[in-house]
Amino acid sequence: MTEQLNTDHAPEYPLECDHCHYPIPGEAEESDEGRYCSVACREAAADGSTMTDPHAYKRIATGVEPLDSLVPNGVPADSLLLLSGEEGTRRTELGVELVWRALERGEPAVVISVMNPPTATLERFYQNGWNVLPALENDRLRVIDCFTSRLDDRDEFRAQRNEWTEFVGEAAEDAVVEVRDPTDRREMTHSLRGALDDLEMTETGLVTIDSLDELESLLQRQTARDLLTDLRATVCKARFVPIIAGTASTGEDDAPAAEYVFDGIIDLRLTDRLAPDARLKRLAVRKLVGAQFLPQWVTYEYEPARGLFAFGPDTDVRQRYEVGNGPLQPNRNR
C-alpha cells in the first residue's frame, strides 16, 4: 500500500513574509509575531518597522485603454518611459491623458513644461475637456516651468494674454515652479525634487516631460542624458514614481538621448496598410523592464474627453468613421 502524505497541517505555499510581503522561498524565520523570509525582516518587524504591501504601489494601471491592454499586469512604478511617436499619432495627448488619469485616481502629478508656457500646458487639458482647476487648488498638480525664463520680454507676453489665459495663469500661480536657468540641469533637478517633496510624492503619482526633443535642444545632448540618468535614479528608483517623456520619431535610427537609459519604450506609428486611403494610428510596447507585455500592435483613435481608445481585434476599421460632407469623425455608434 502506498503511504499517503499527510497534508492536513502543511502550510499553504508559497508563504508570504509578514514584513516585506514577498514569498518565502525556503524555511521561514519565525517569531511570536509571524513568519519572515529572512533574519533582516524578522528583526525589522521586532523593531516596529512596518512595510507597505509592494503590490499596492509597485505597478500601476495607467487608465489609458490601448496601453493597459498591452500591459495587463500594470506598468512598474519605478520606470523611466519614453513615448516615441510620429507626428500625427497624438503623442502629446497621450502624455496629457496619463497625467489626467493619475489625477482621476486621486494621485498627484508634476508636468515639466519645456516646450510651452504653463498656461499653454494647462490648456491642453481643457482642450480635452479635463478641468484641472480643482487639482491646482487642492495641491495635486505642479508645473515645472522651463519656458518662461527664455522669453525676451515676459511682461509683453503677459500683456498679450486674453481673459481666459490670464485667469488660468492667476489660478495656477501657486502651482507653477519657475526654473530661472533651464540650461542648469542641477537647478531643474532641484526644482523637481522640491515639488515632489511638497506633494509628498513617494509611491504615488507620476511625472511627465512634455518634450524630450526640446529638452535636448535646450541642453547639450550629454547633459540631457545625465539629467535623465539622475532623475531615473532619484525619482523612479528611489521614490517609485514613474517619469514619462515624449519624443518625435521619424522612423529612422536617430534615437534621442540614448534609448538604453529608458526602462520602457512605447512606439506610436501611422500605417496605411489596414484600410484603403486611411492612415491609422497604432501603438506597441517595444520594451518594458520588469513587466510582461503583449508583443503586438494595437490600433487606436483619440476623442476629446474620452482620450485614446483601442479598436477591437475584429473591428472593420473602415466602419469606425462616419463619412459625410464634413471632416472625418469617429463613429460613436460602433
Rank of each mutant, 00 (worst) to 15 (best):
K58P: 07
D253F: 11
K281F: 11
P242Q: 03
A175E: 03
Q4N: 05
T62F: 10
N333V: 02
A44P: 06
T299M: 06
W130F: 02
K281A: 05
Q292S: 06
D210W: 11
G63M: 07
M115I: 04
V168F: 01
A28T: 02
R154E: 15
D155P: 08
G307R: 00
V207C: 10
G95A: 09
E27H: 12
P66F: 00
T247K: 10
F311L: 12
V261F: 03
V289N: 14
T315N: 10
H55T: 13
E178Q: 14
W130V: 10
L283H: 11
E163G: 14
N331T: 04
F167Y: 15
G205K: 07
A195V: 07
A46C: 04
A291Q: 13
H19W: 04
L268V: 03
A56P: 15
L228F: 10
C17W: 00
D68G: 06
L288W: 12
S191N: 13
T121G: 06
Y300K: 01
N325D: 15
S31A: 07
A257M: 05
A275H: 15
T62K: 07
Q220L: 09
Q222G: 06
S191V: 05
I266V: 03
P304K: 01
E12G: 00
L228M: 13
Y57K: 05
R282D: 15
I144K: 00
A28S: 06
R186Y: 08
R320P: 12
P330K: 09
P242C: 00
P108G: 00
E166R: 14
L212N: 02
G312L: 13
D18F: 02
E137Q: 12
A284I: 06
E301I: 07
E33A: 12
N6C: 10
A28Y: 03
D267E: 11
L328R: 13
T7L: 01
T121W: 08
C37S: 05
E203P: 13
D316W: 14
A284M: 05
N73G: 13
T271Y: 08
T189A: 13
H55C: 09
L231R: 09
E104L: 05
P295E: 09
A109C: 10
G312A: 07
G88H: 00
D174W: 09
P134Q: 03
L83P: 08
V261S: 06
R273A: 12
N6Y: 03
E30C: 09
V285C: 01
L98Y: 02
P76F: 00
L227W: 06
V64I: 01
S49L: 13
C17N: 00
V168L: 10
L192T: 05
P108Y: 07
H21V: 11
F293I: 01
L288P: 07
D184C: 03
A102G: 03
R59C: 03
G85F: 03
A284C: 02
G326T: 15
T250M: 08
L141T: 03
P25T: 12
N333M: 06
H21P: 04
D8K: 13
V111L: 07
I209T: 01
P242V: 09
V241S: 00
G34H: 09
V298E: 04
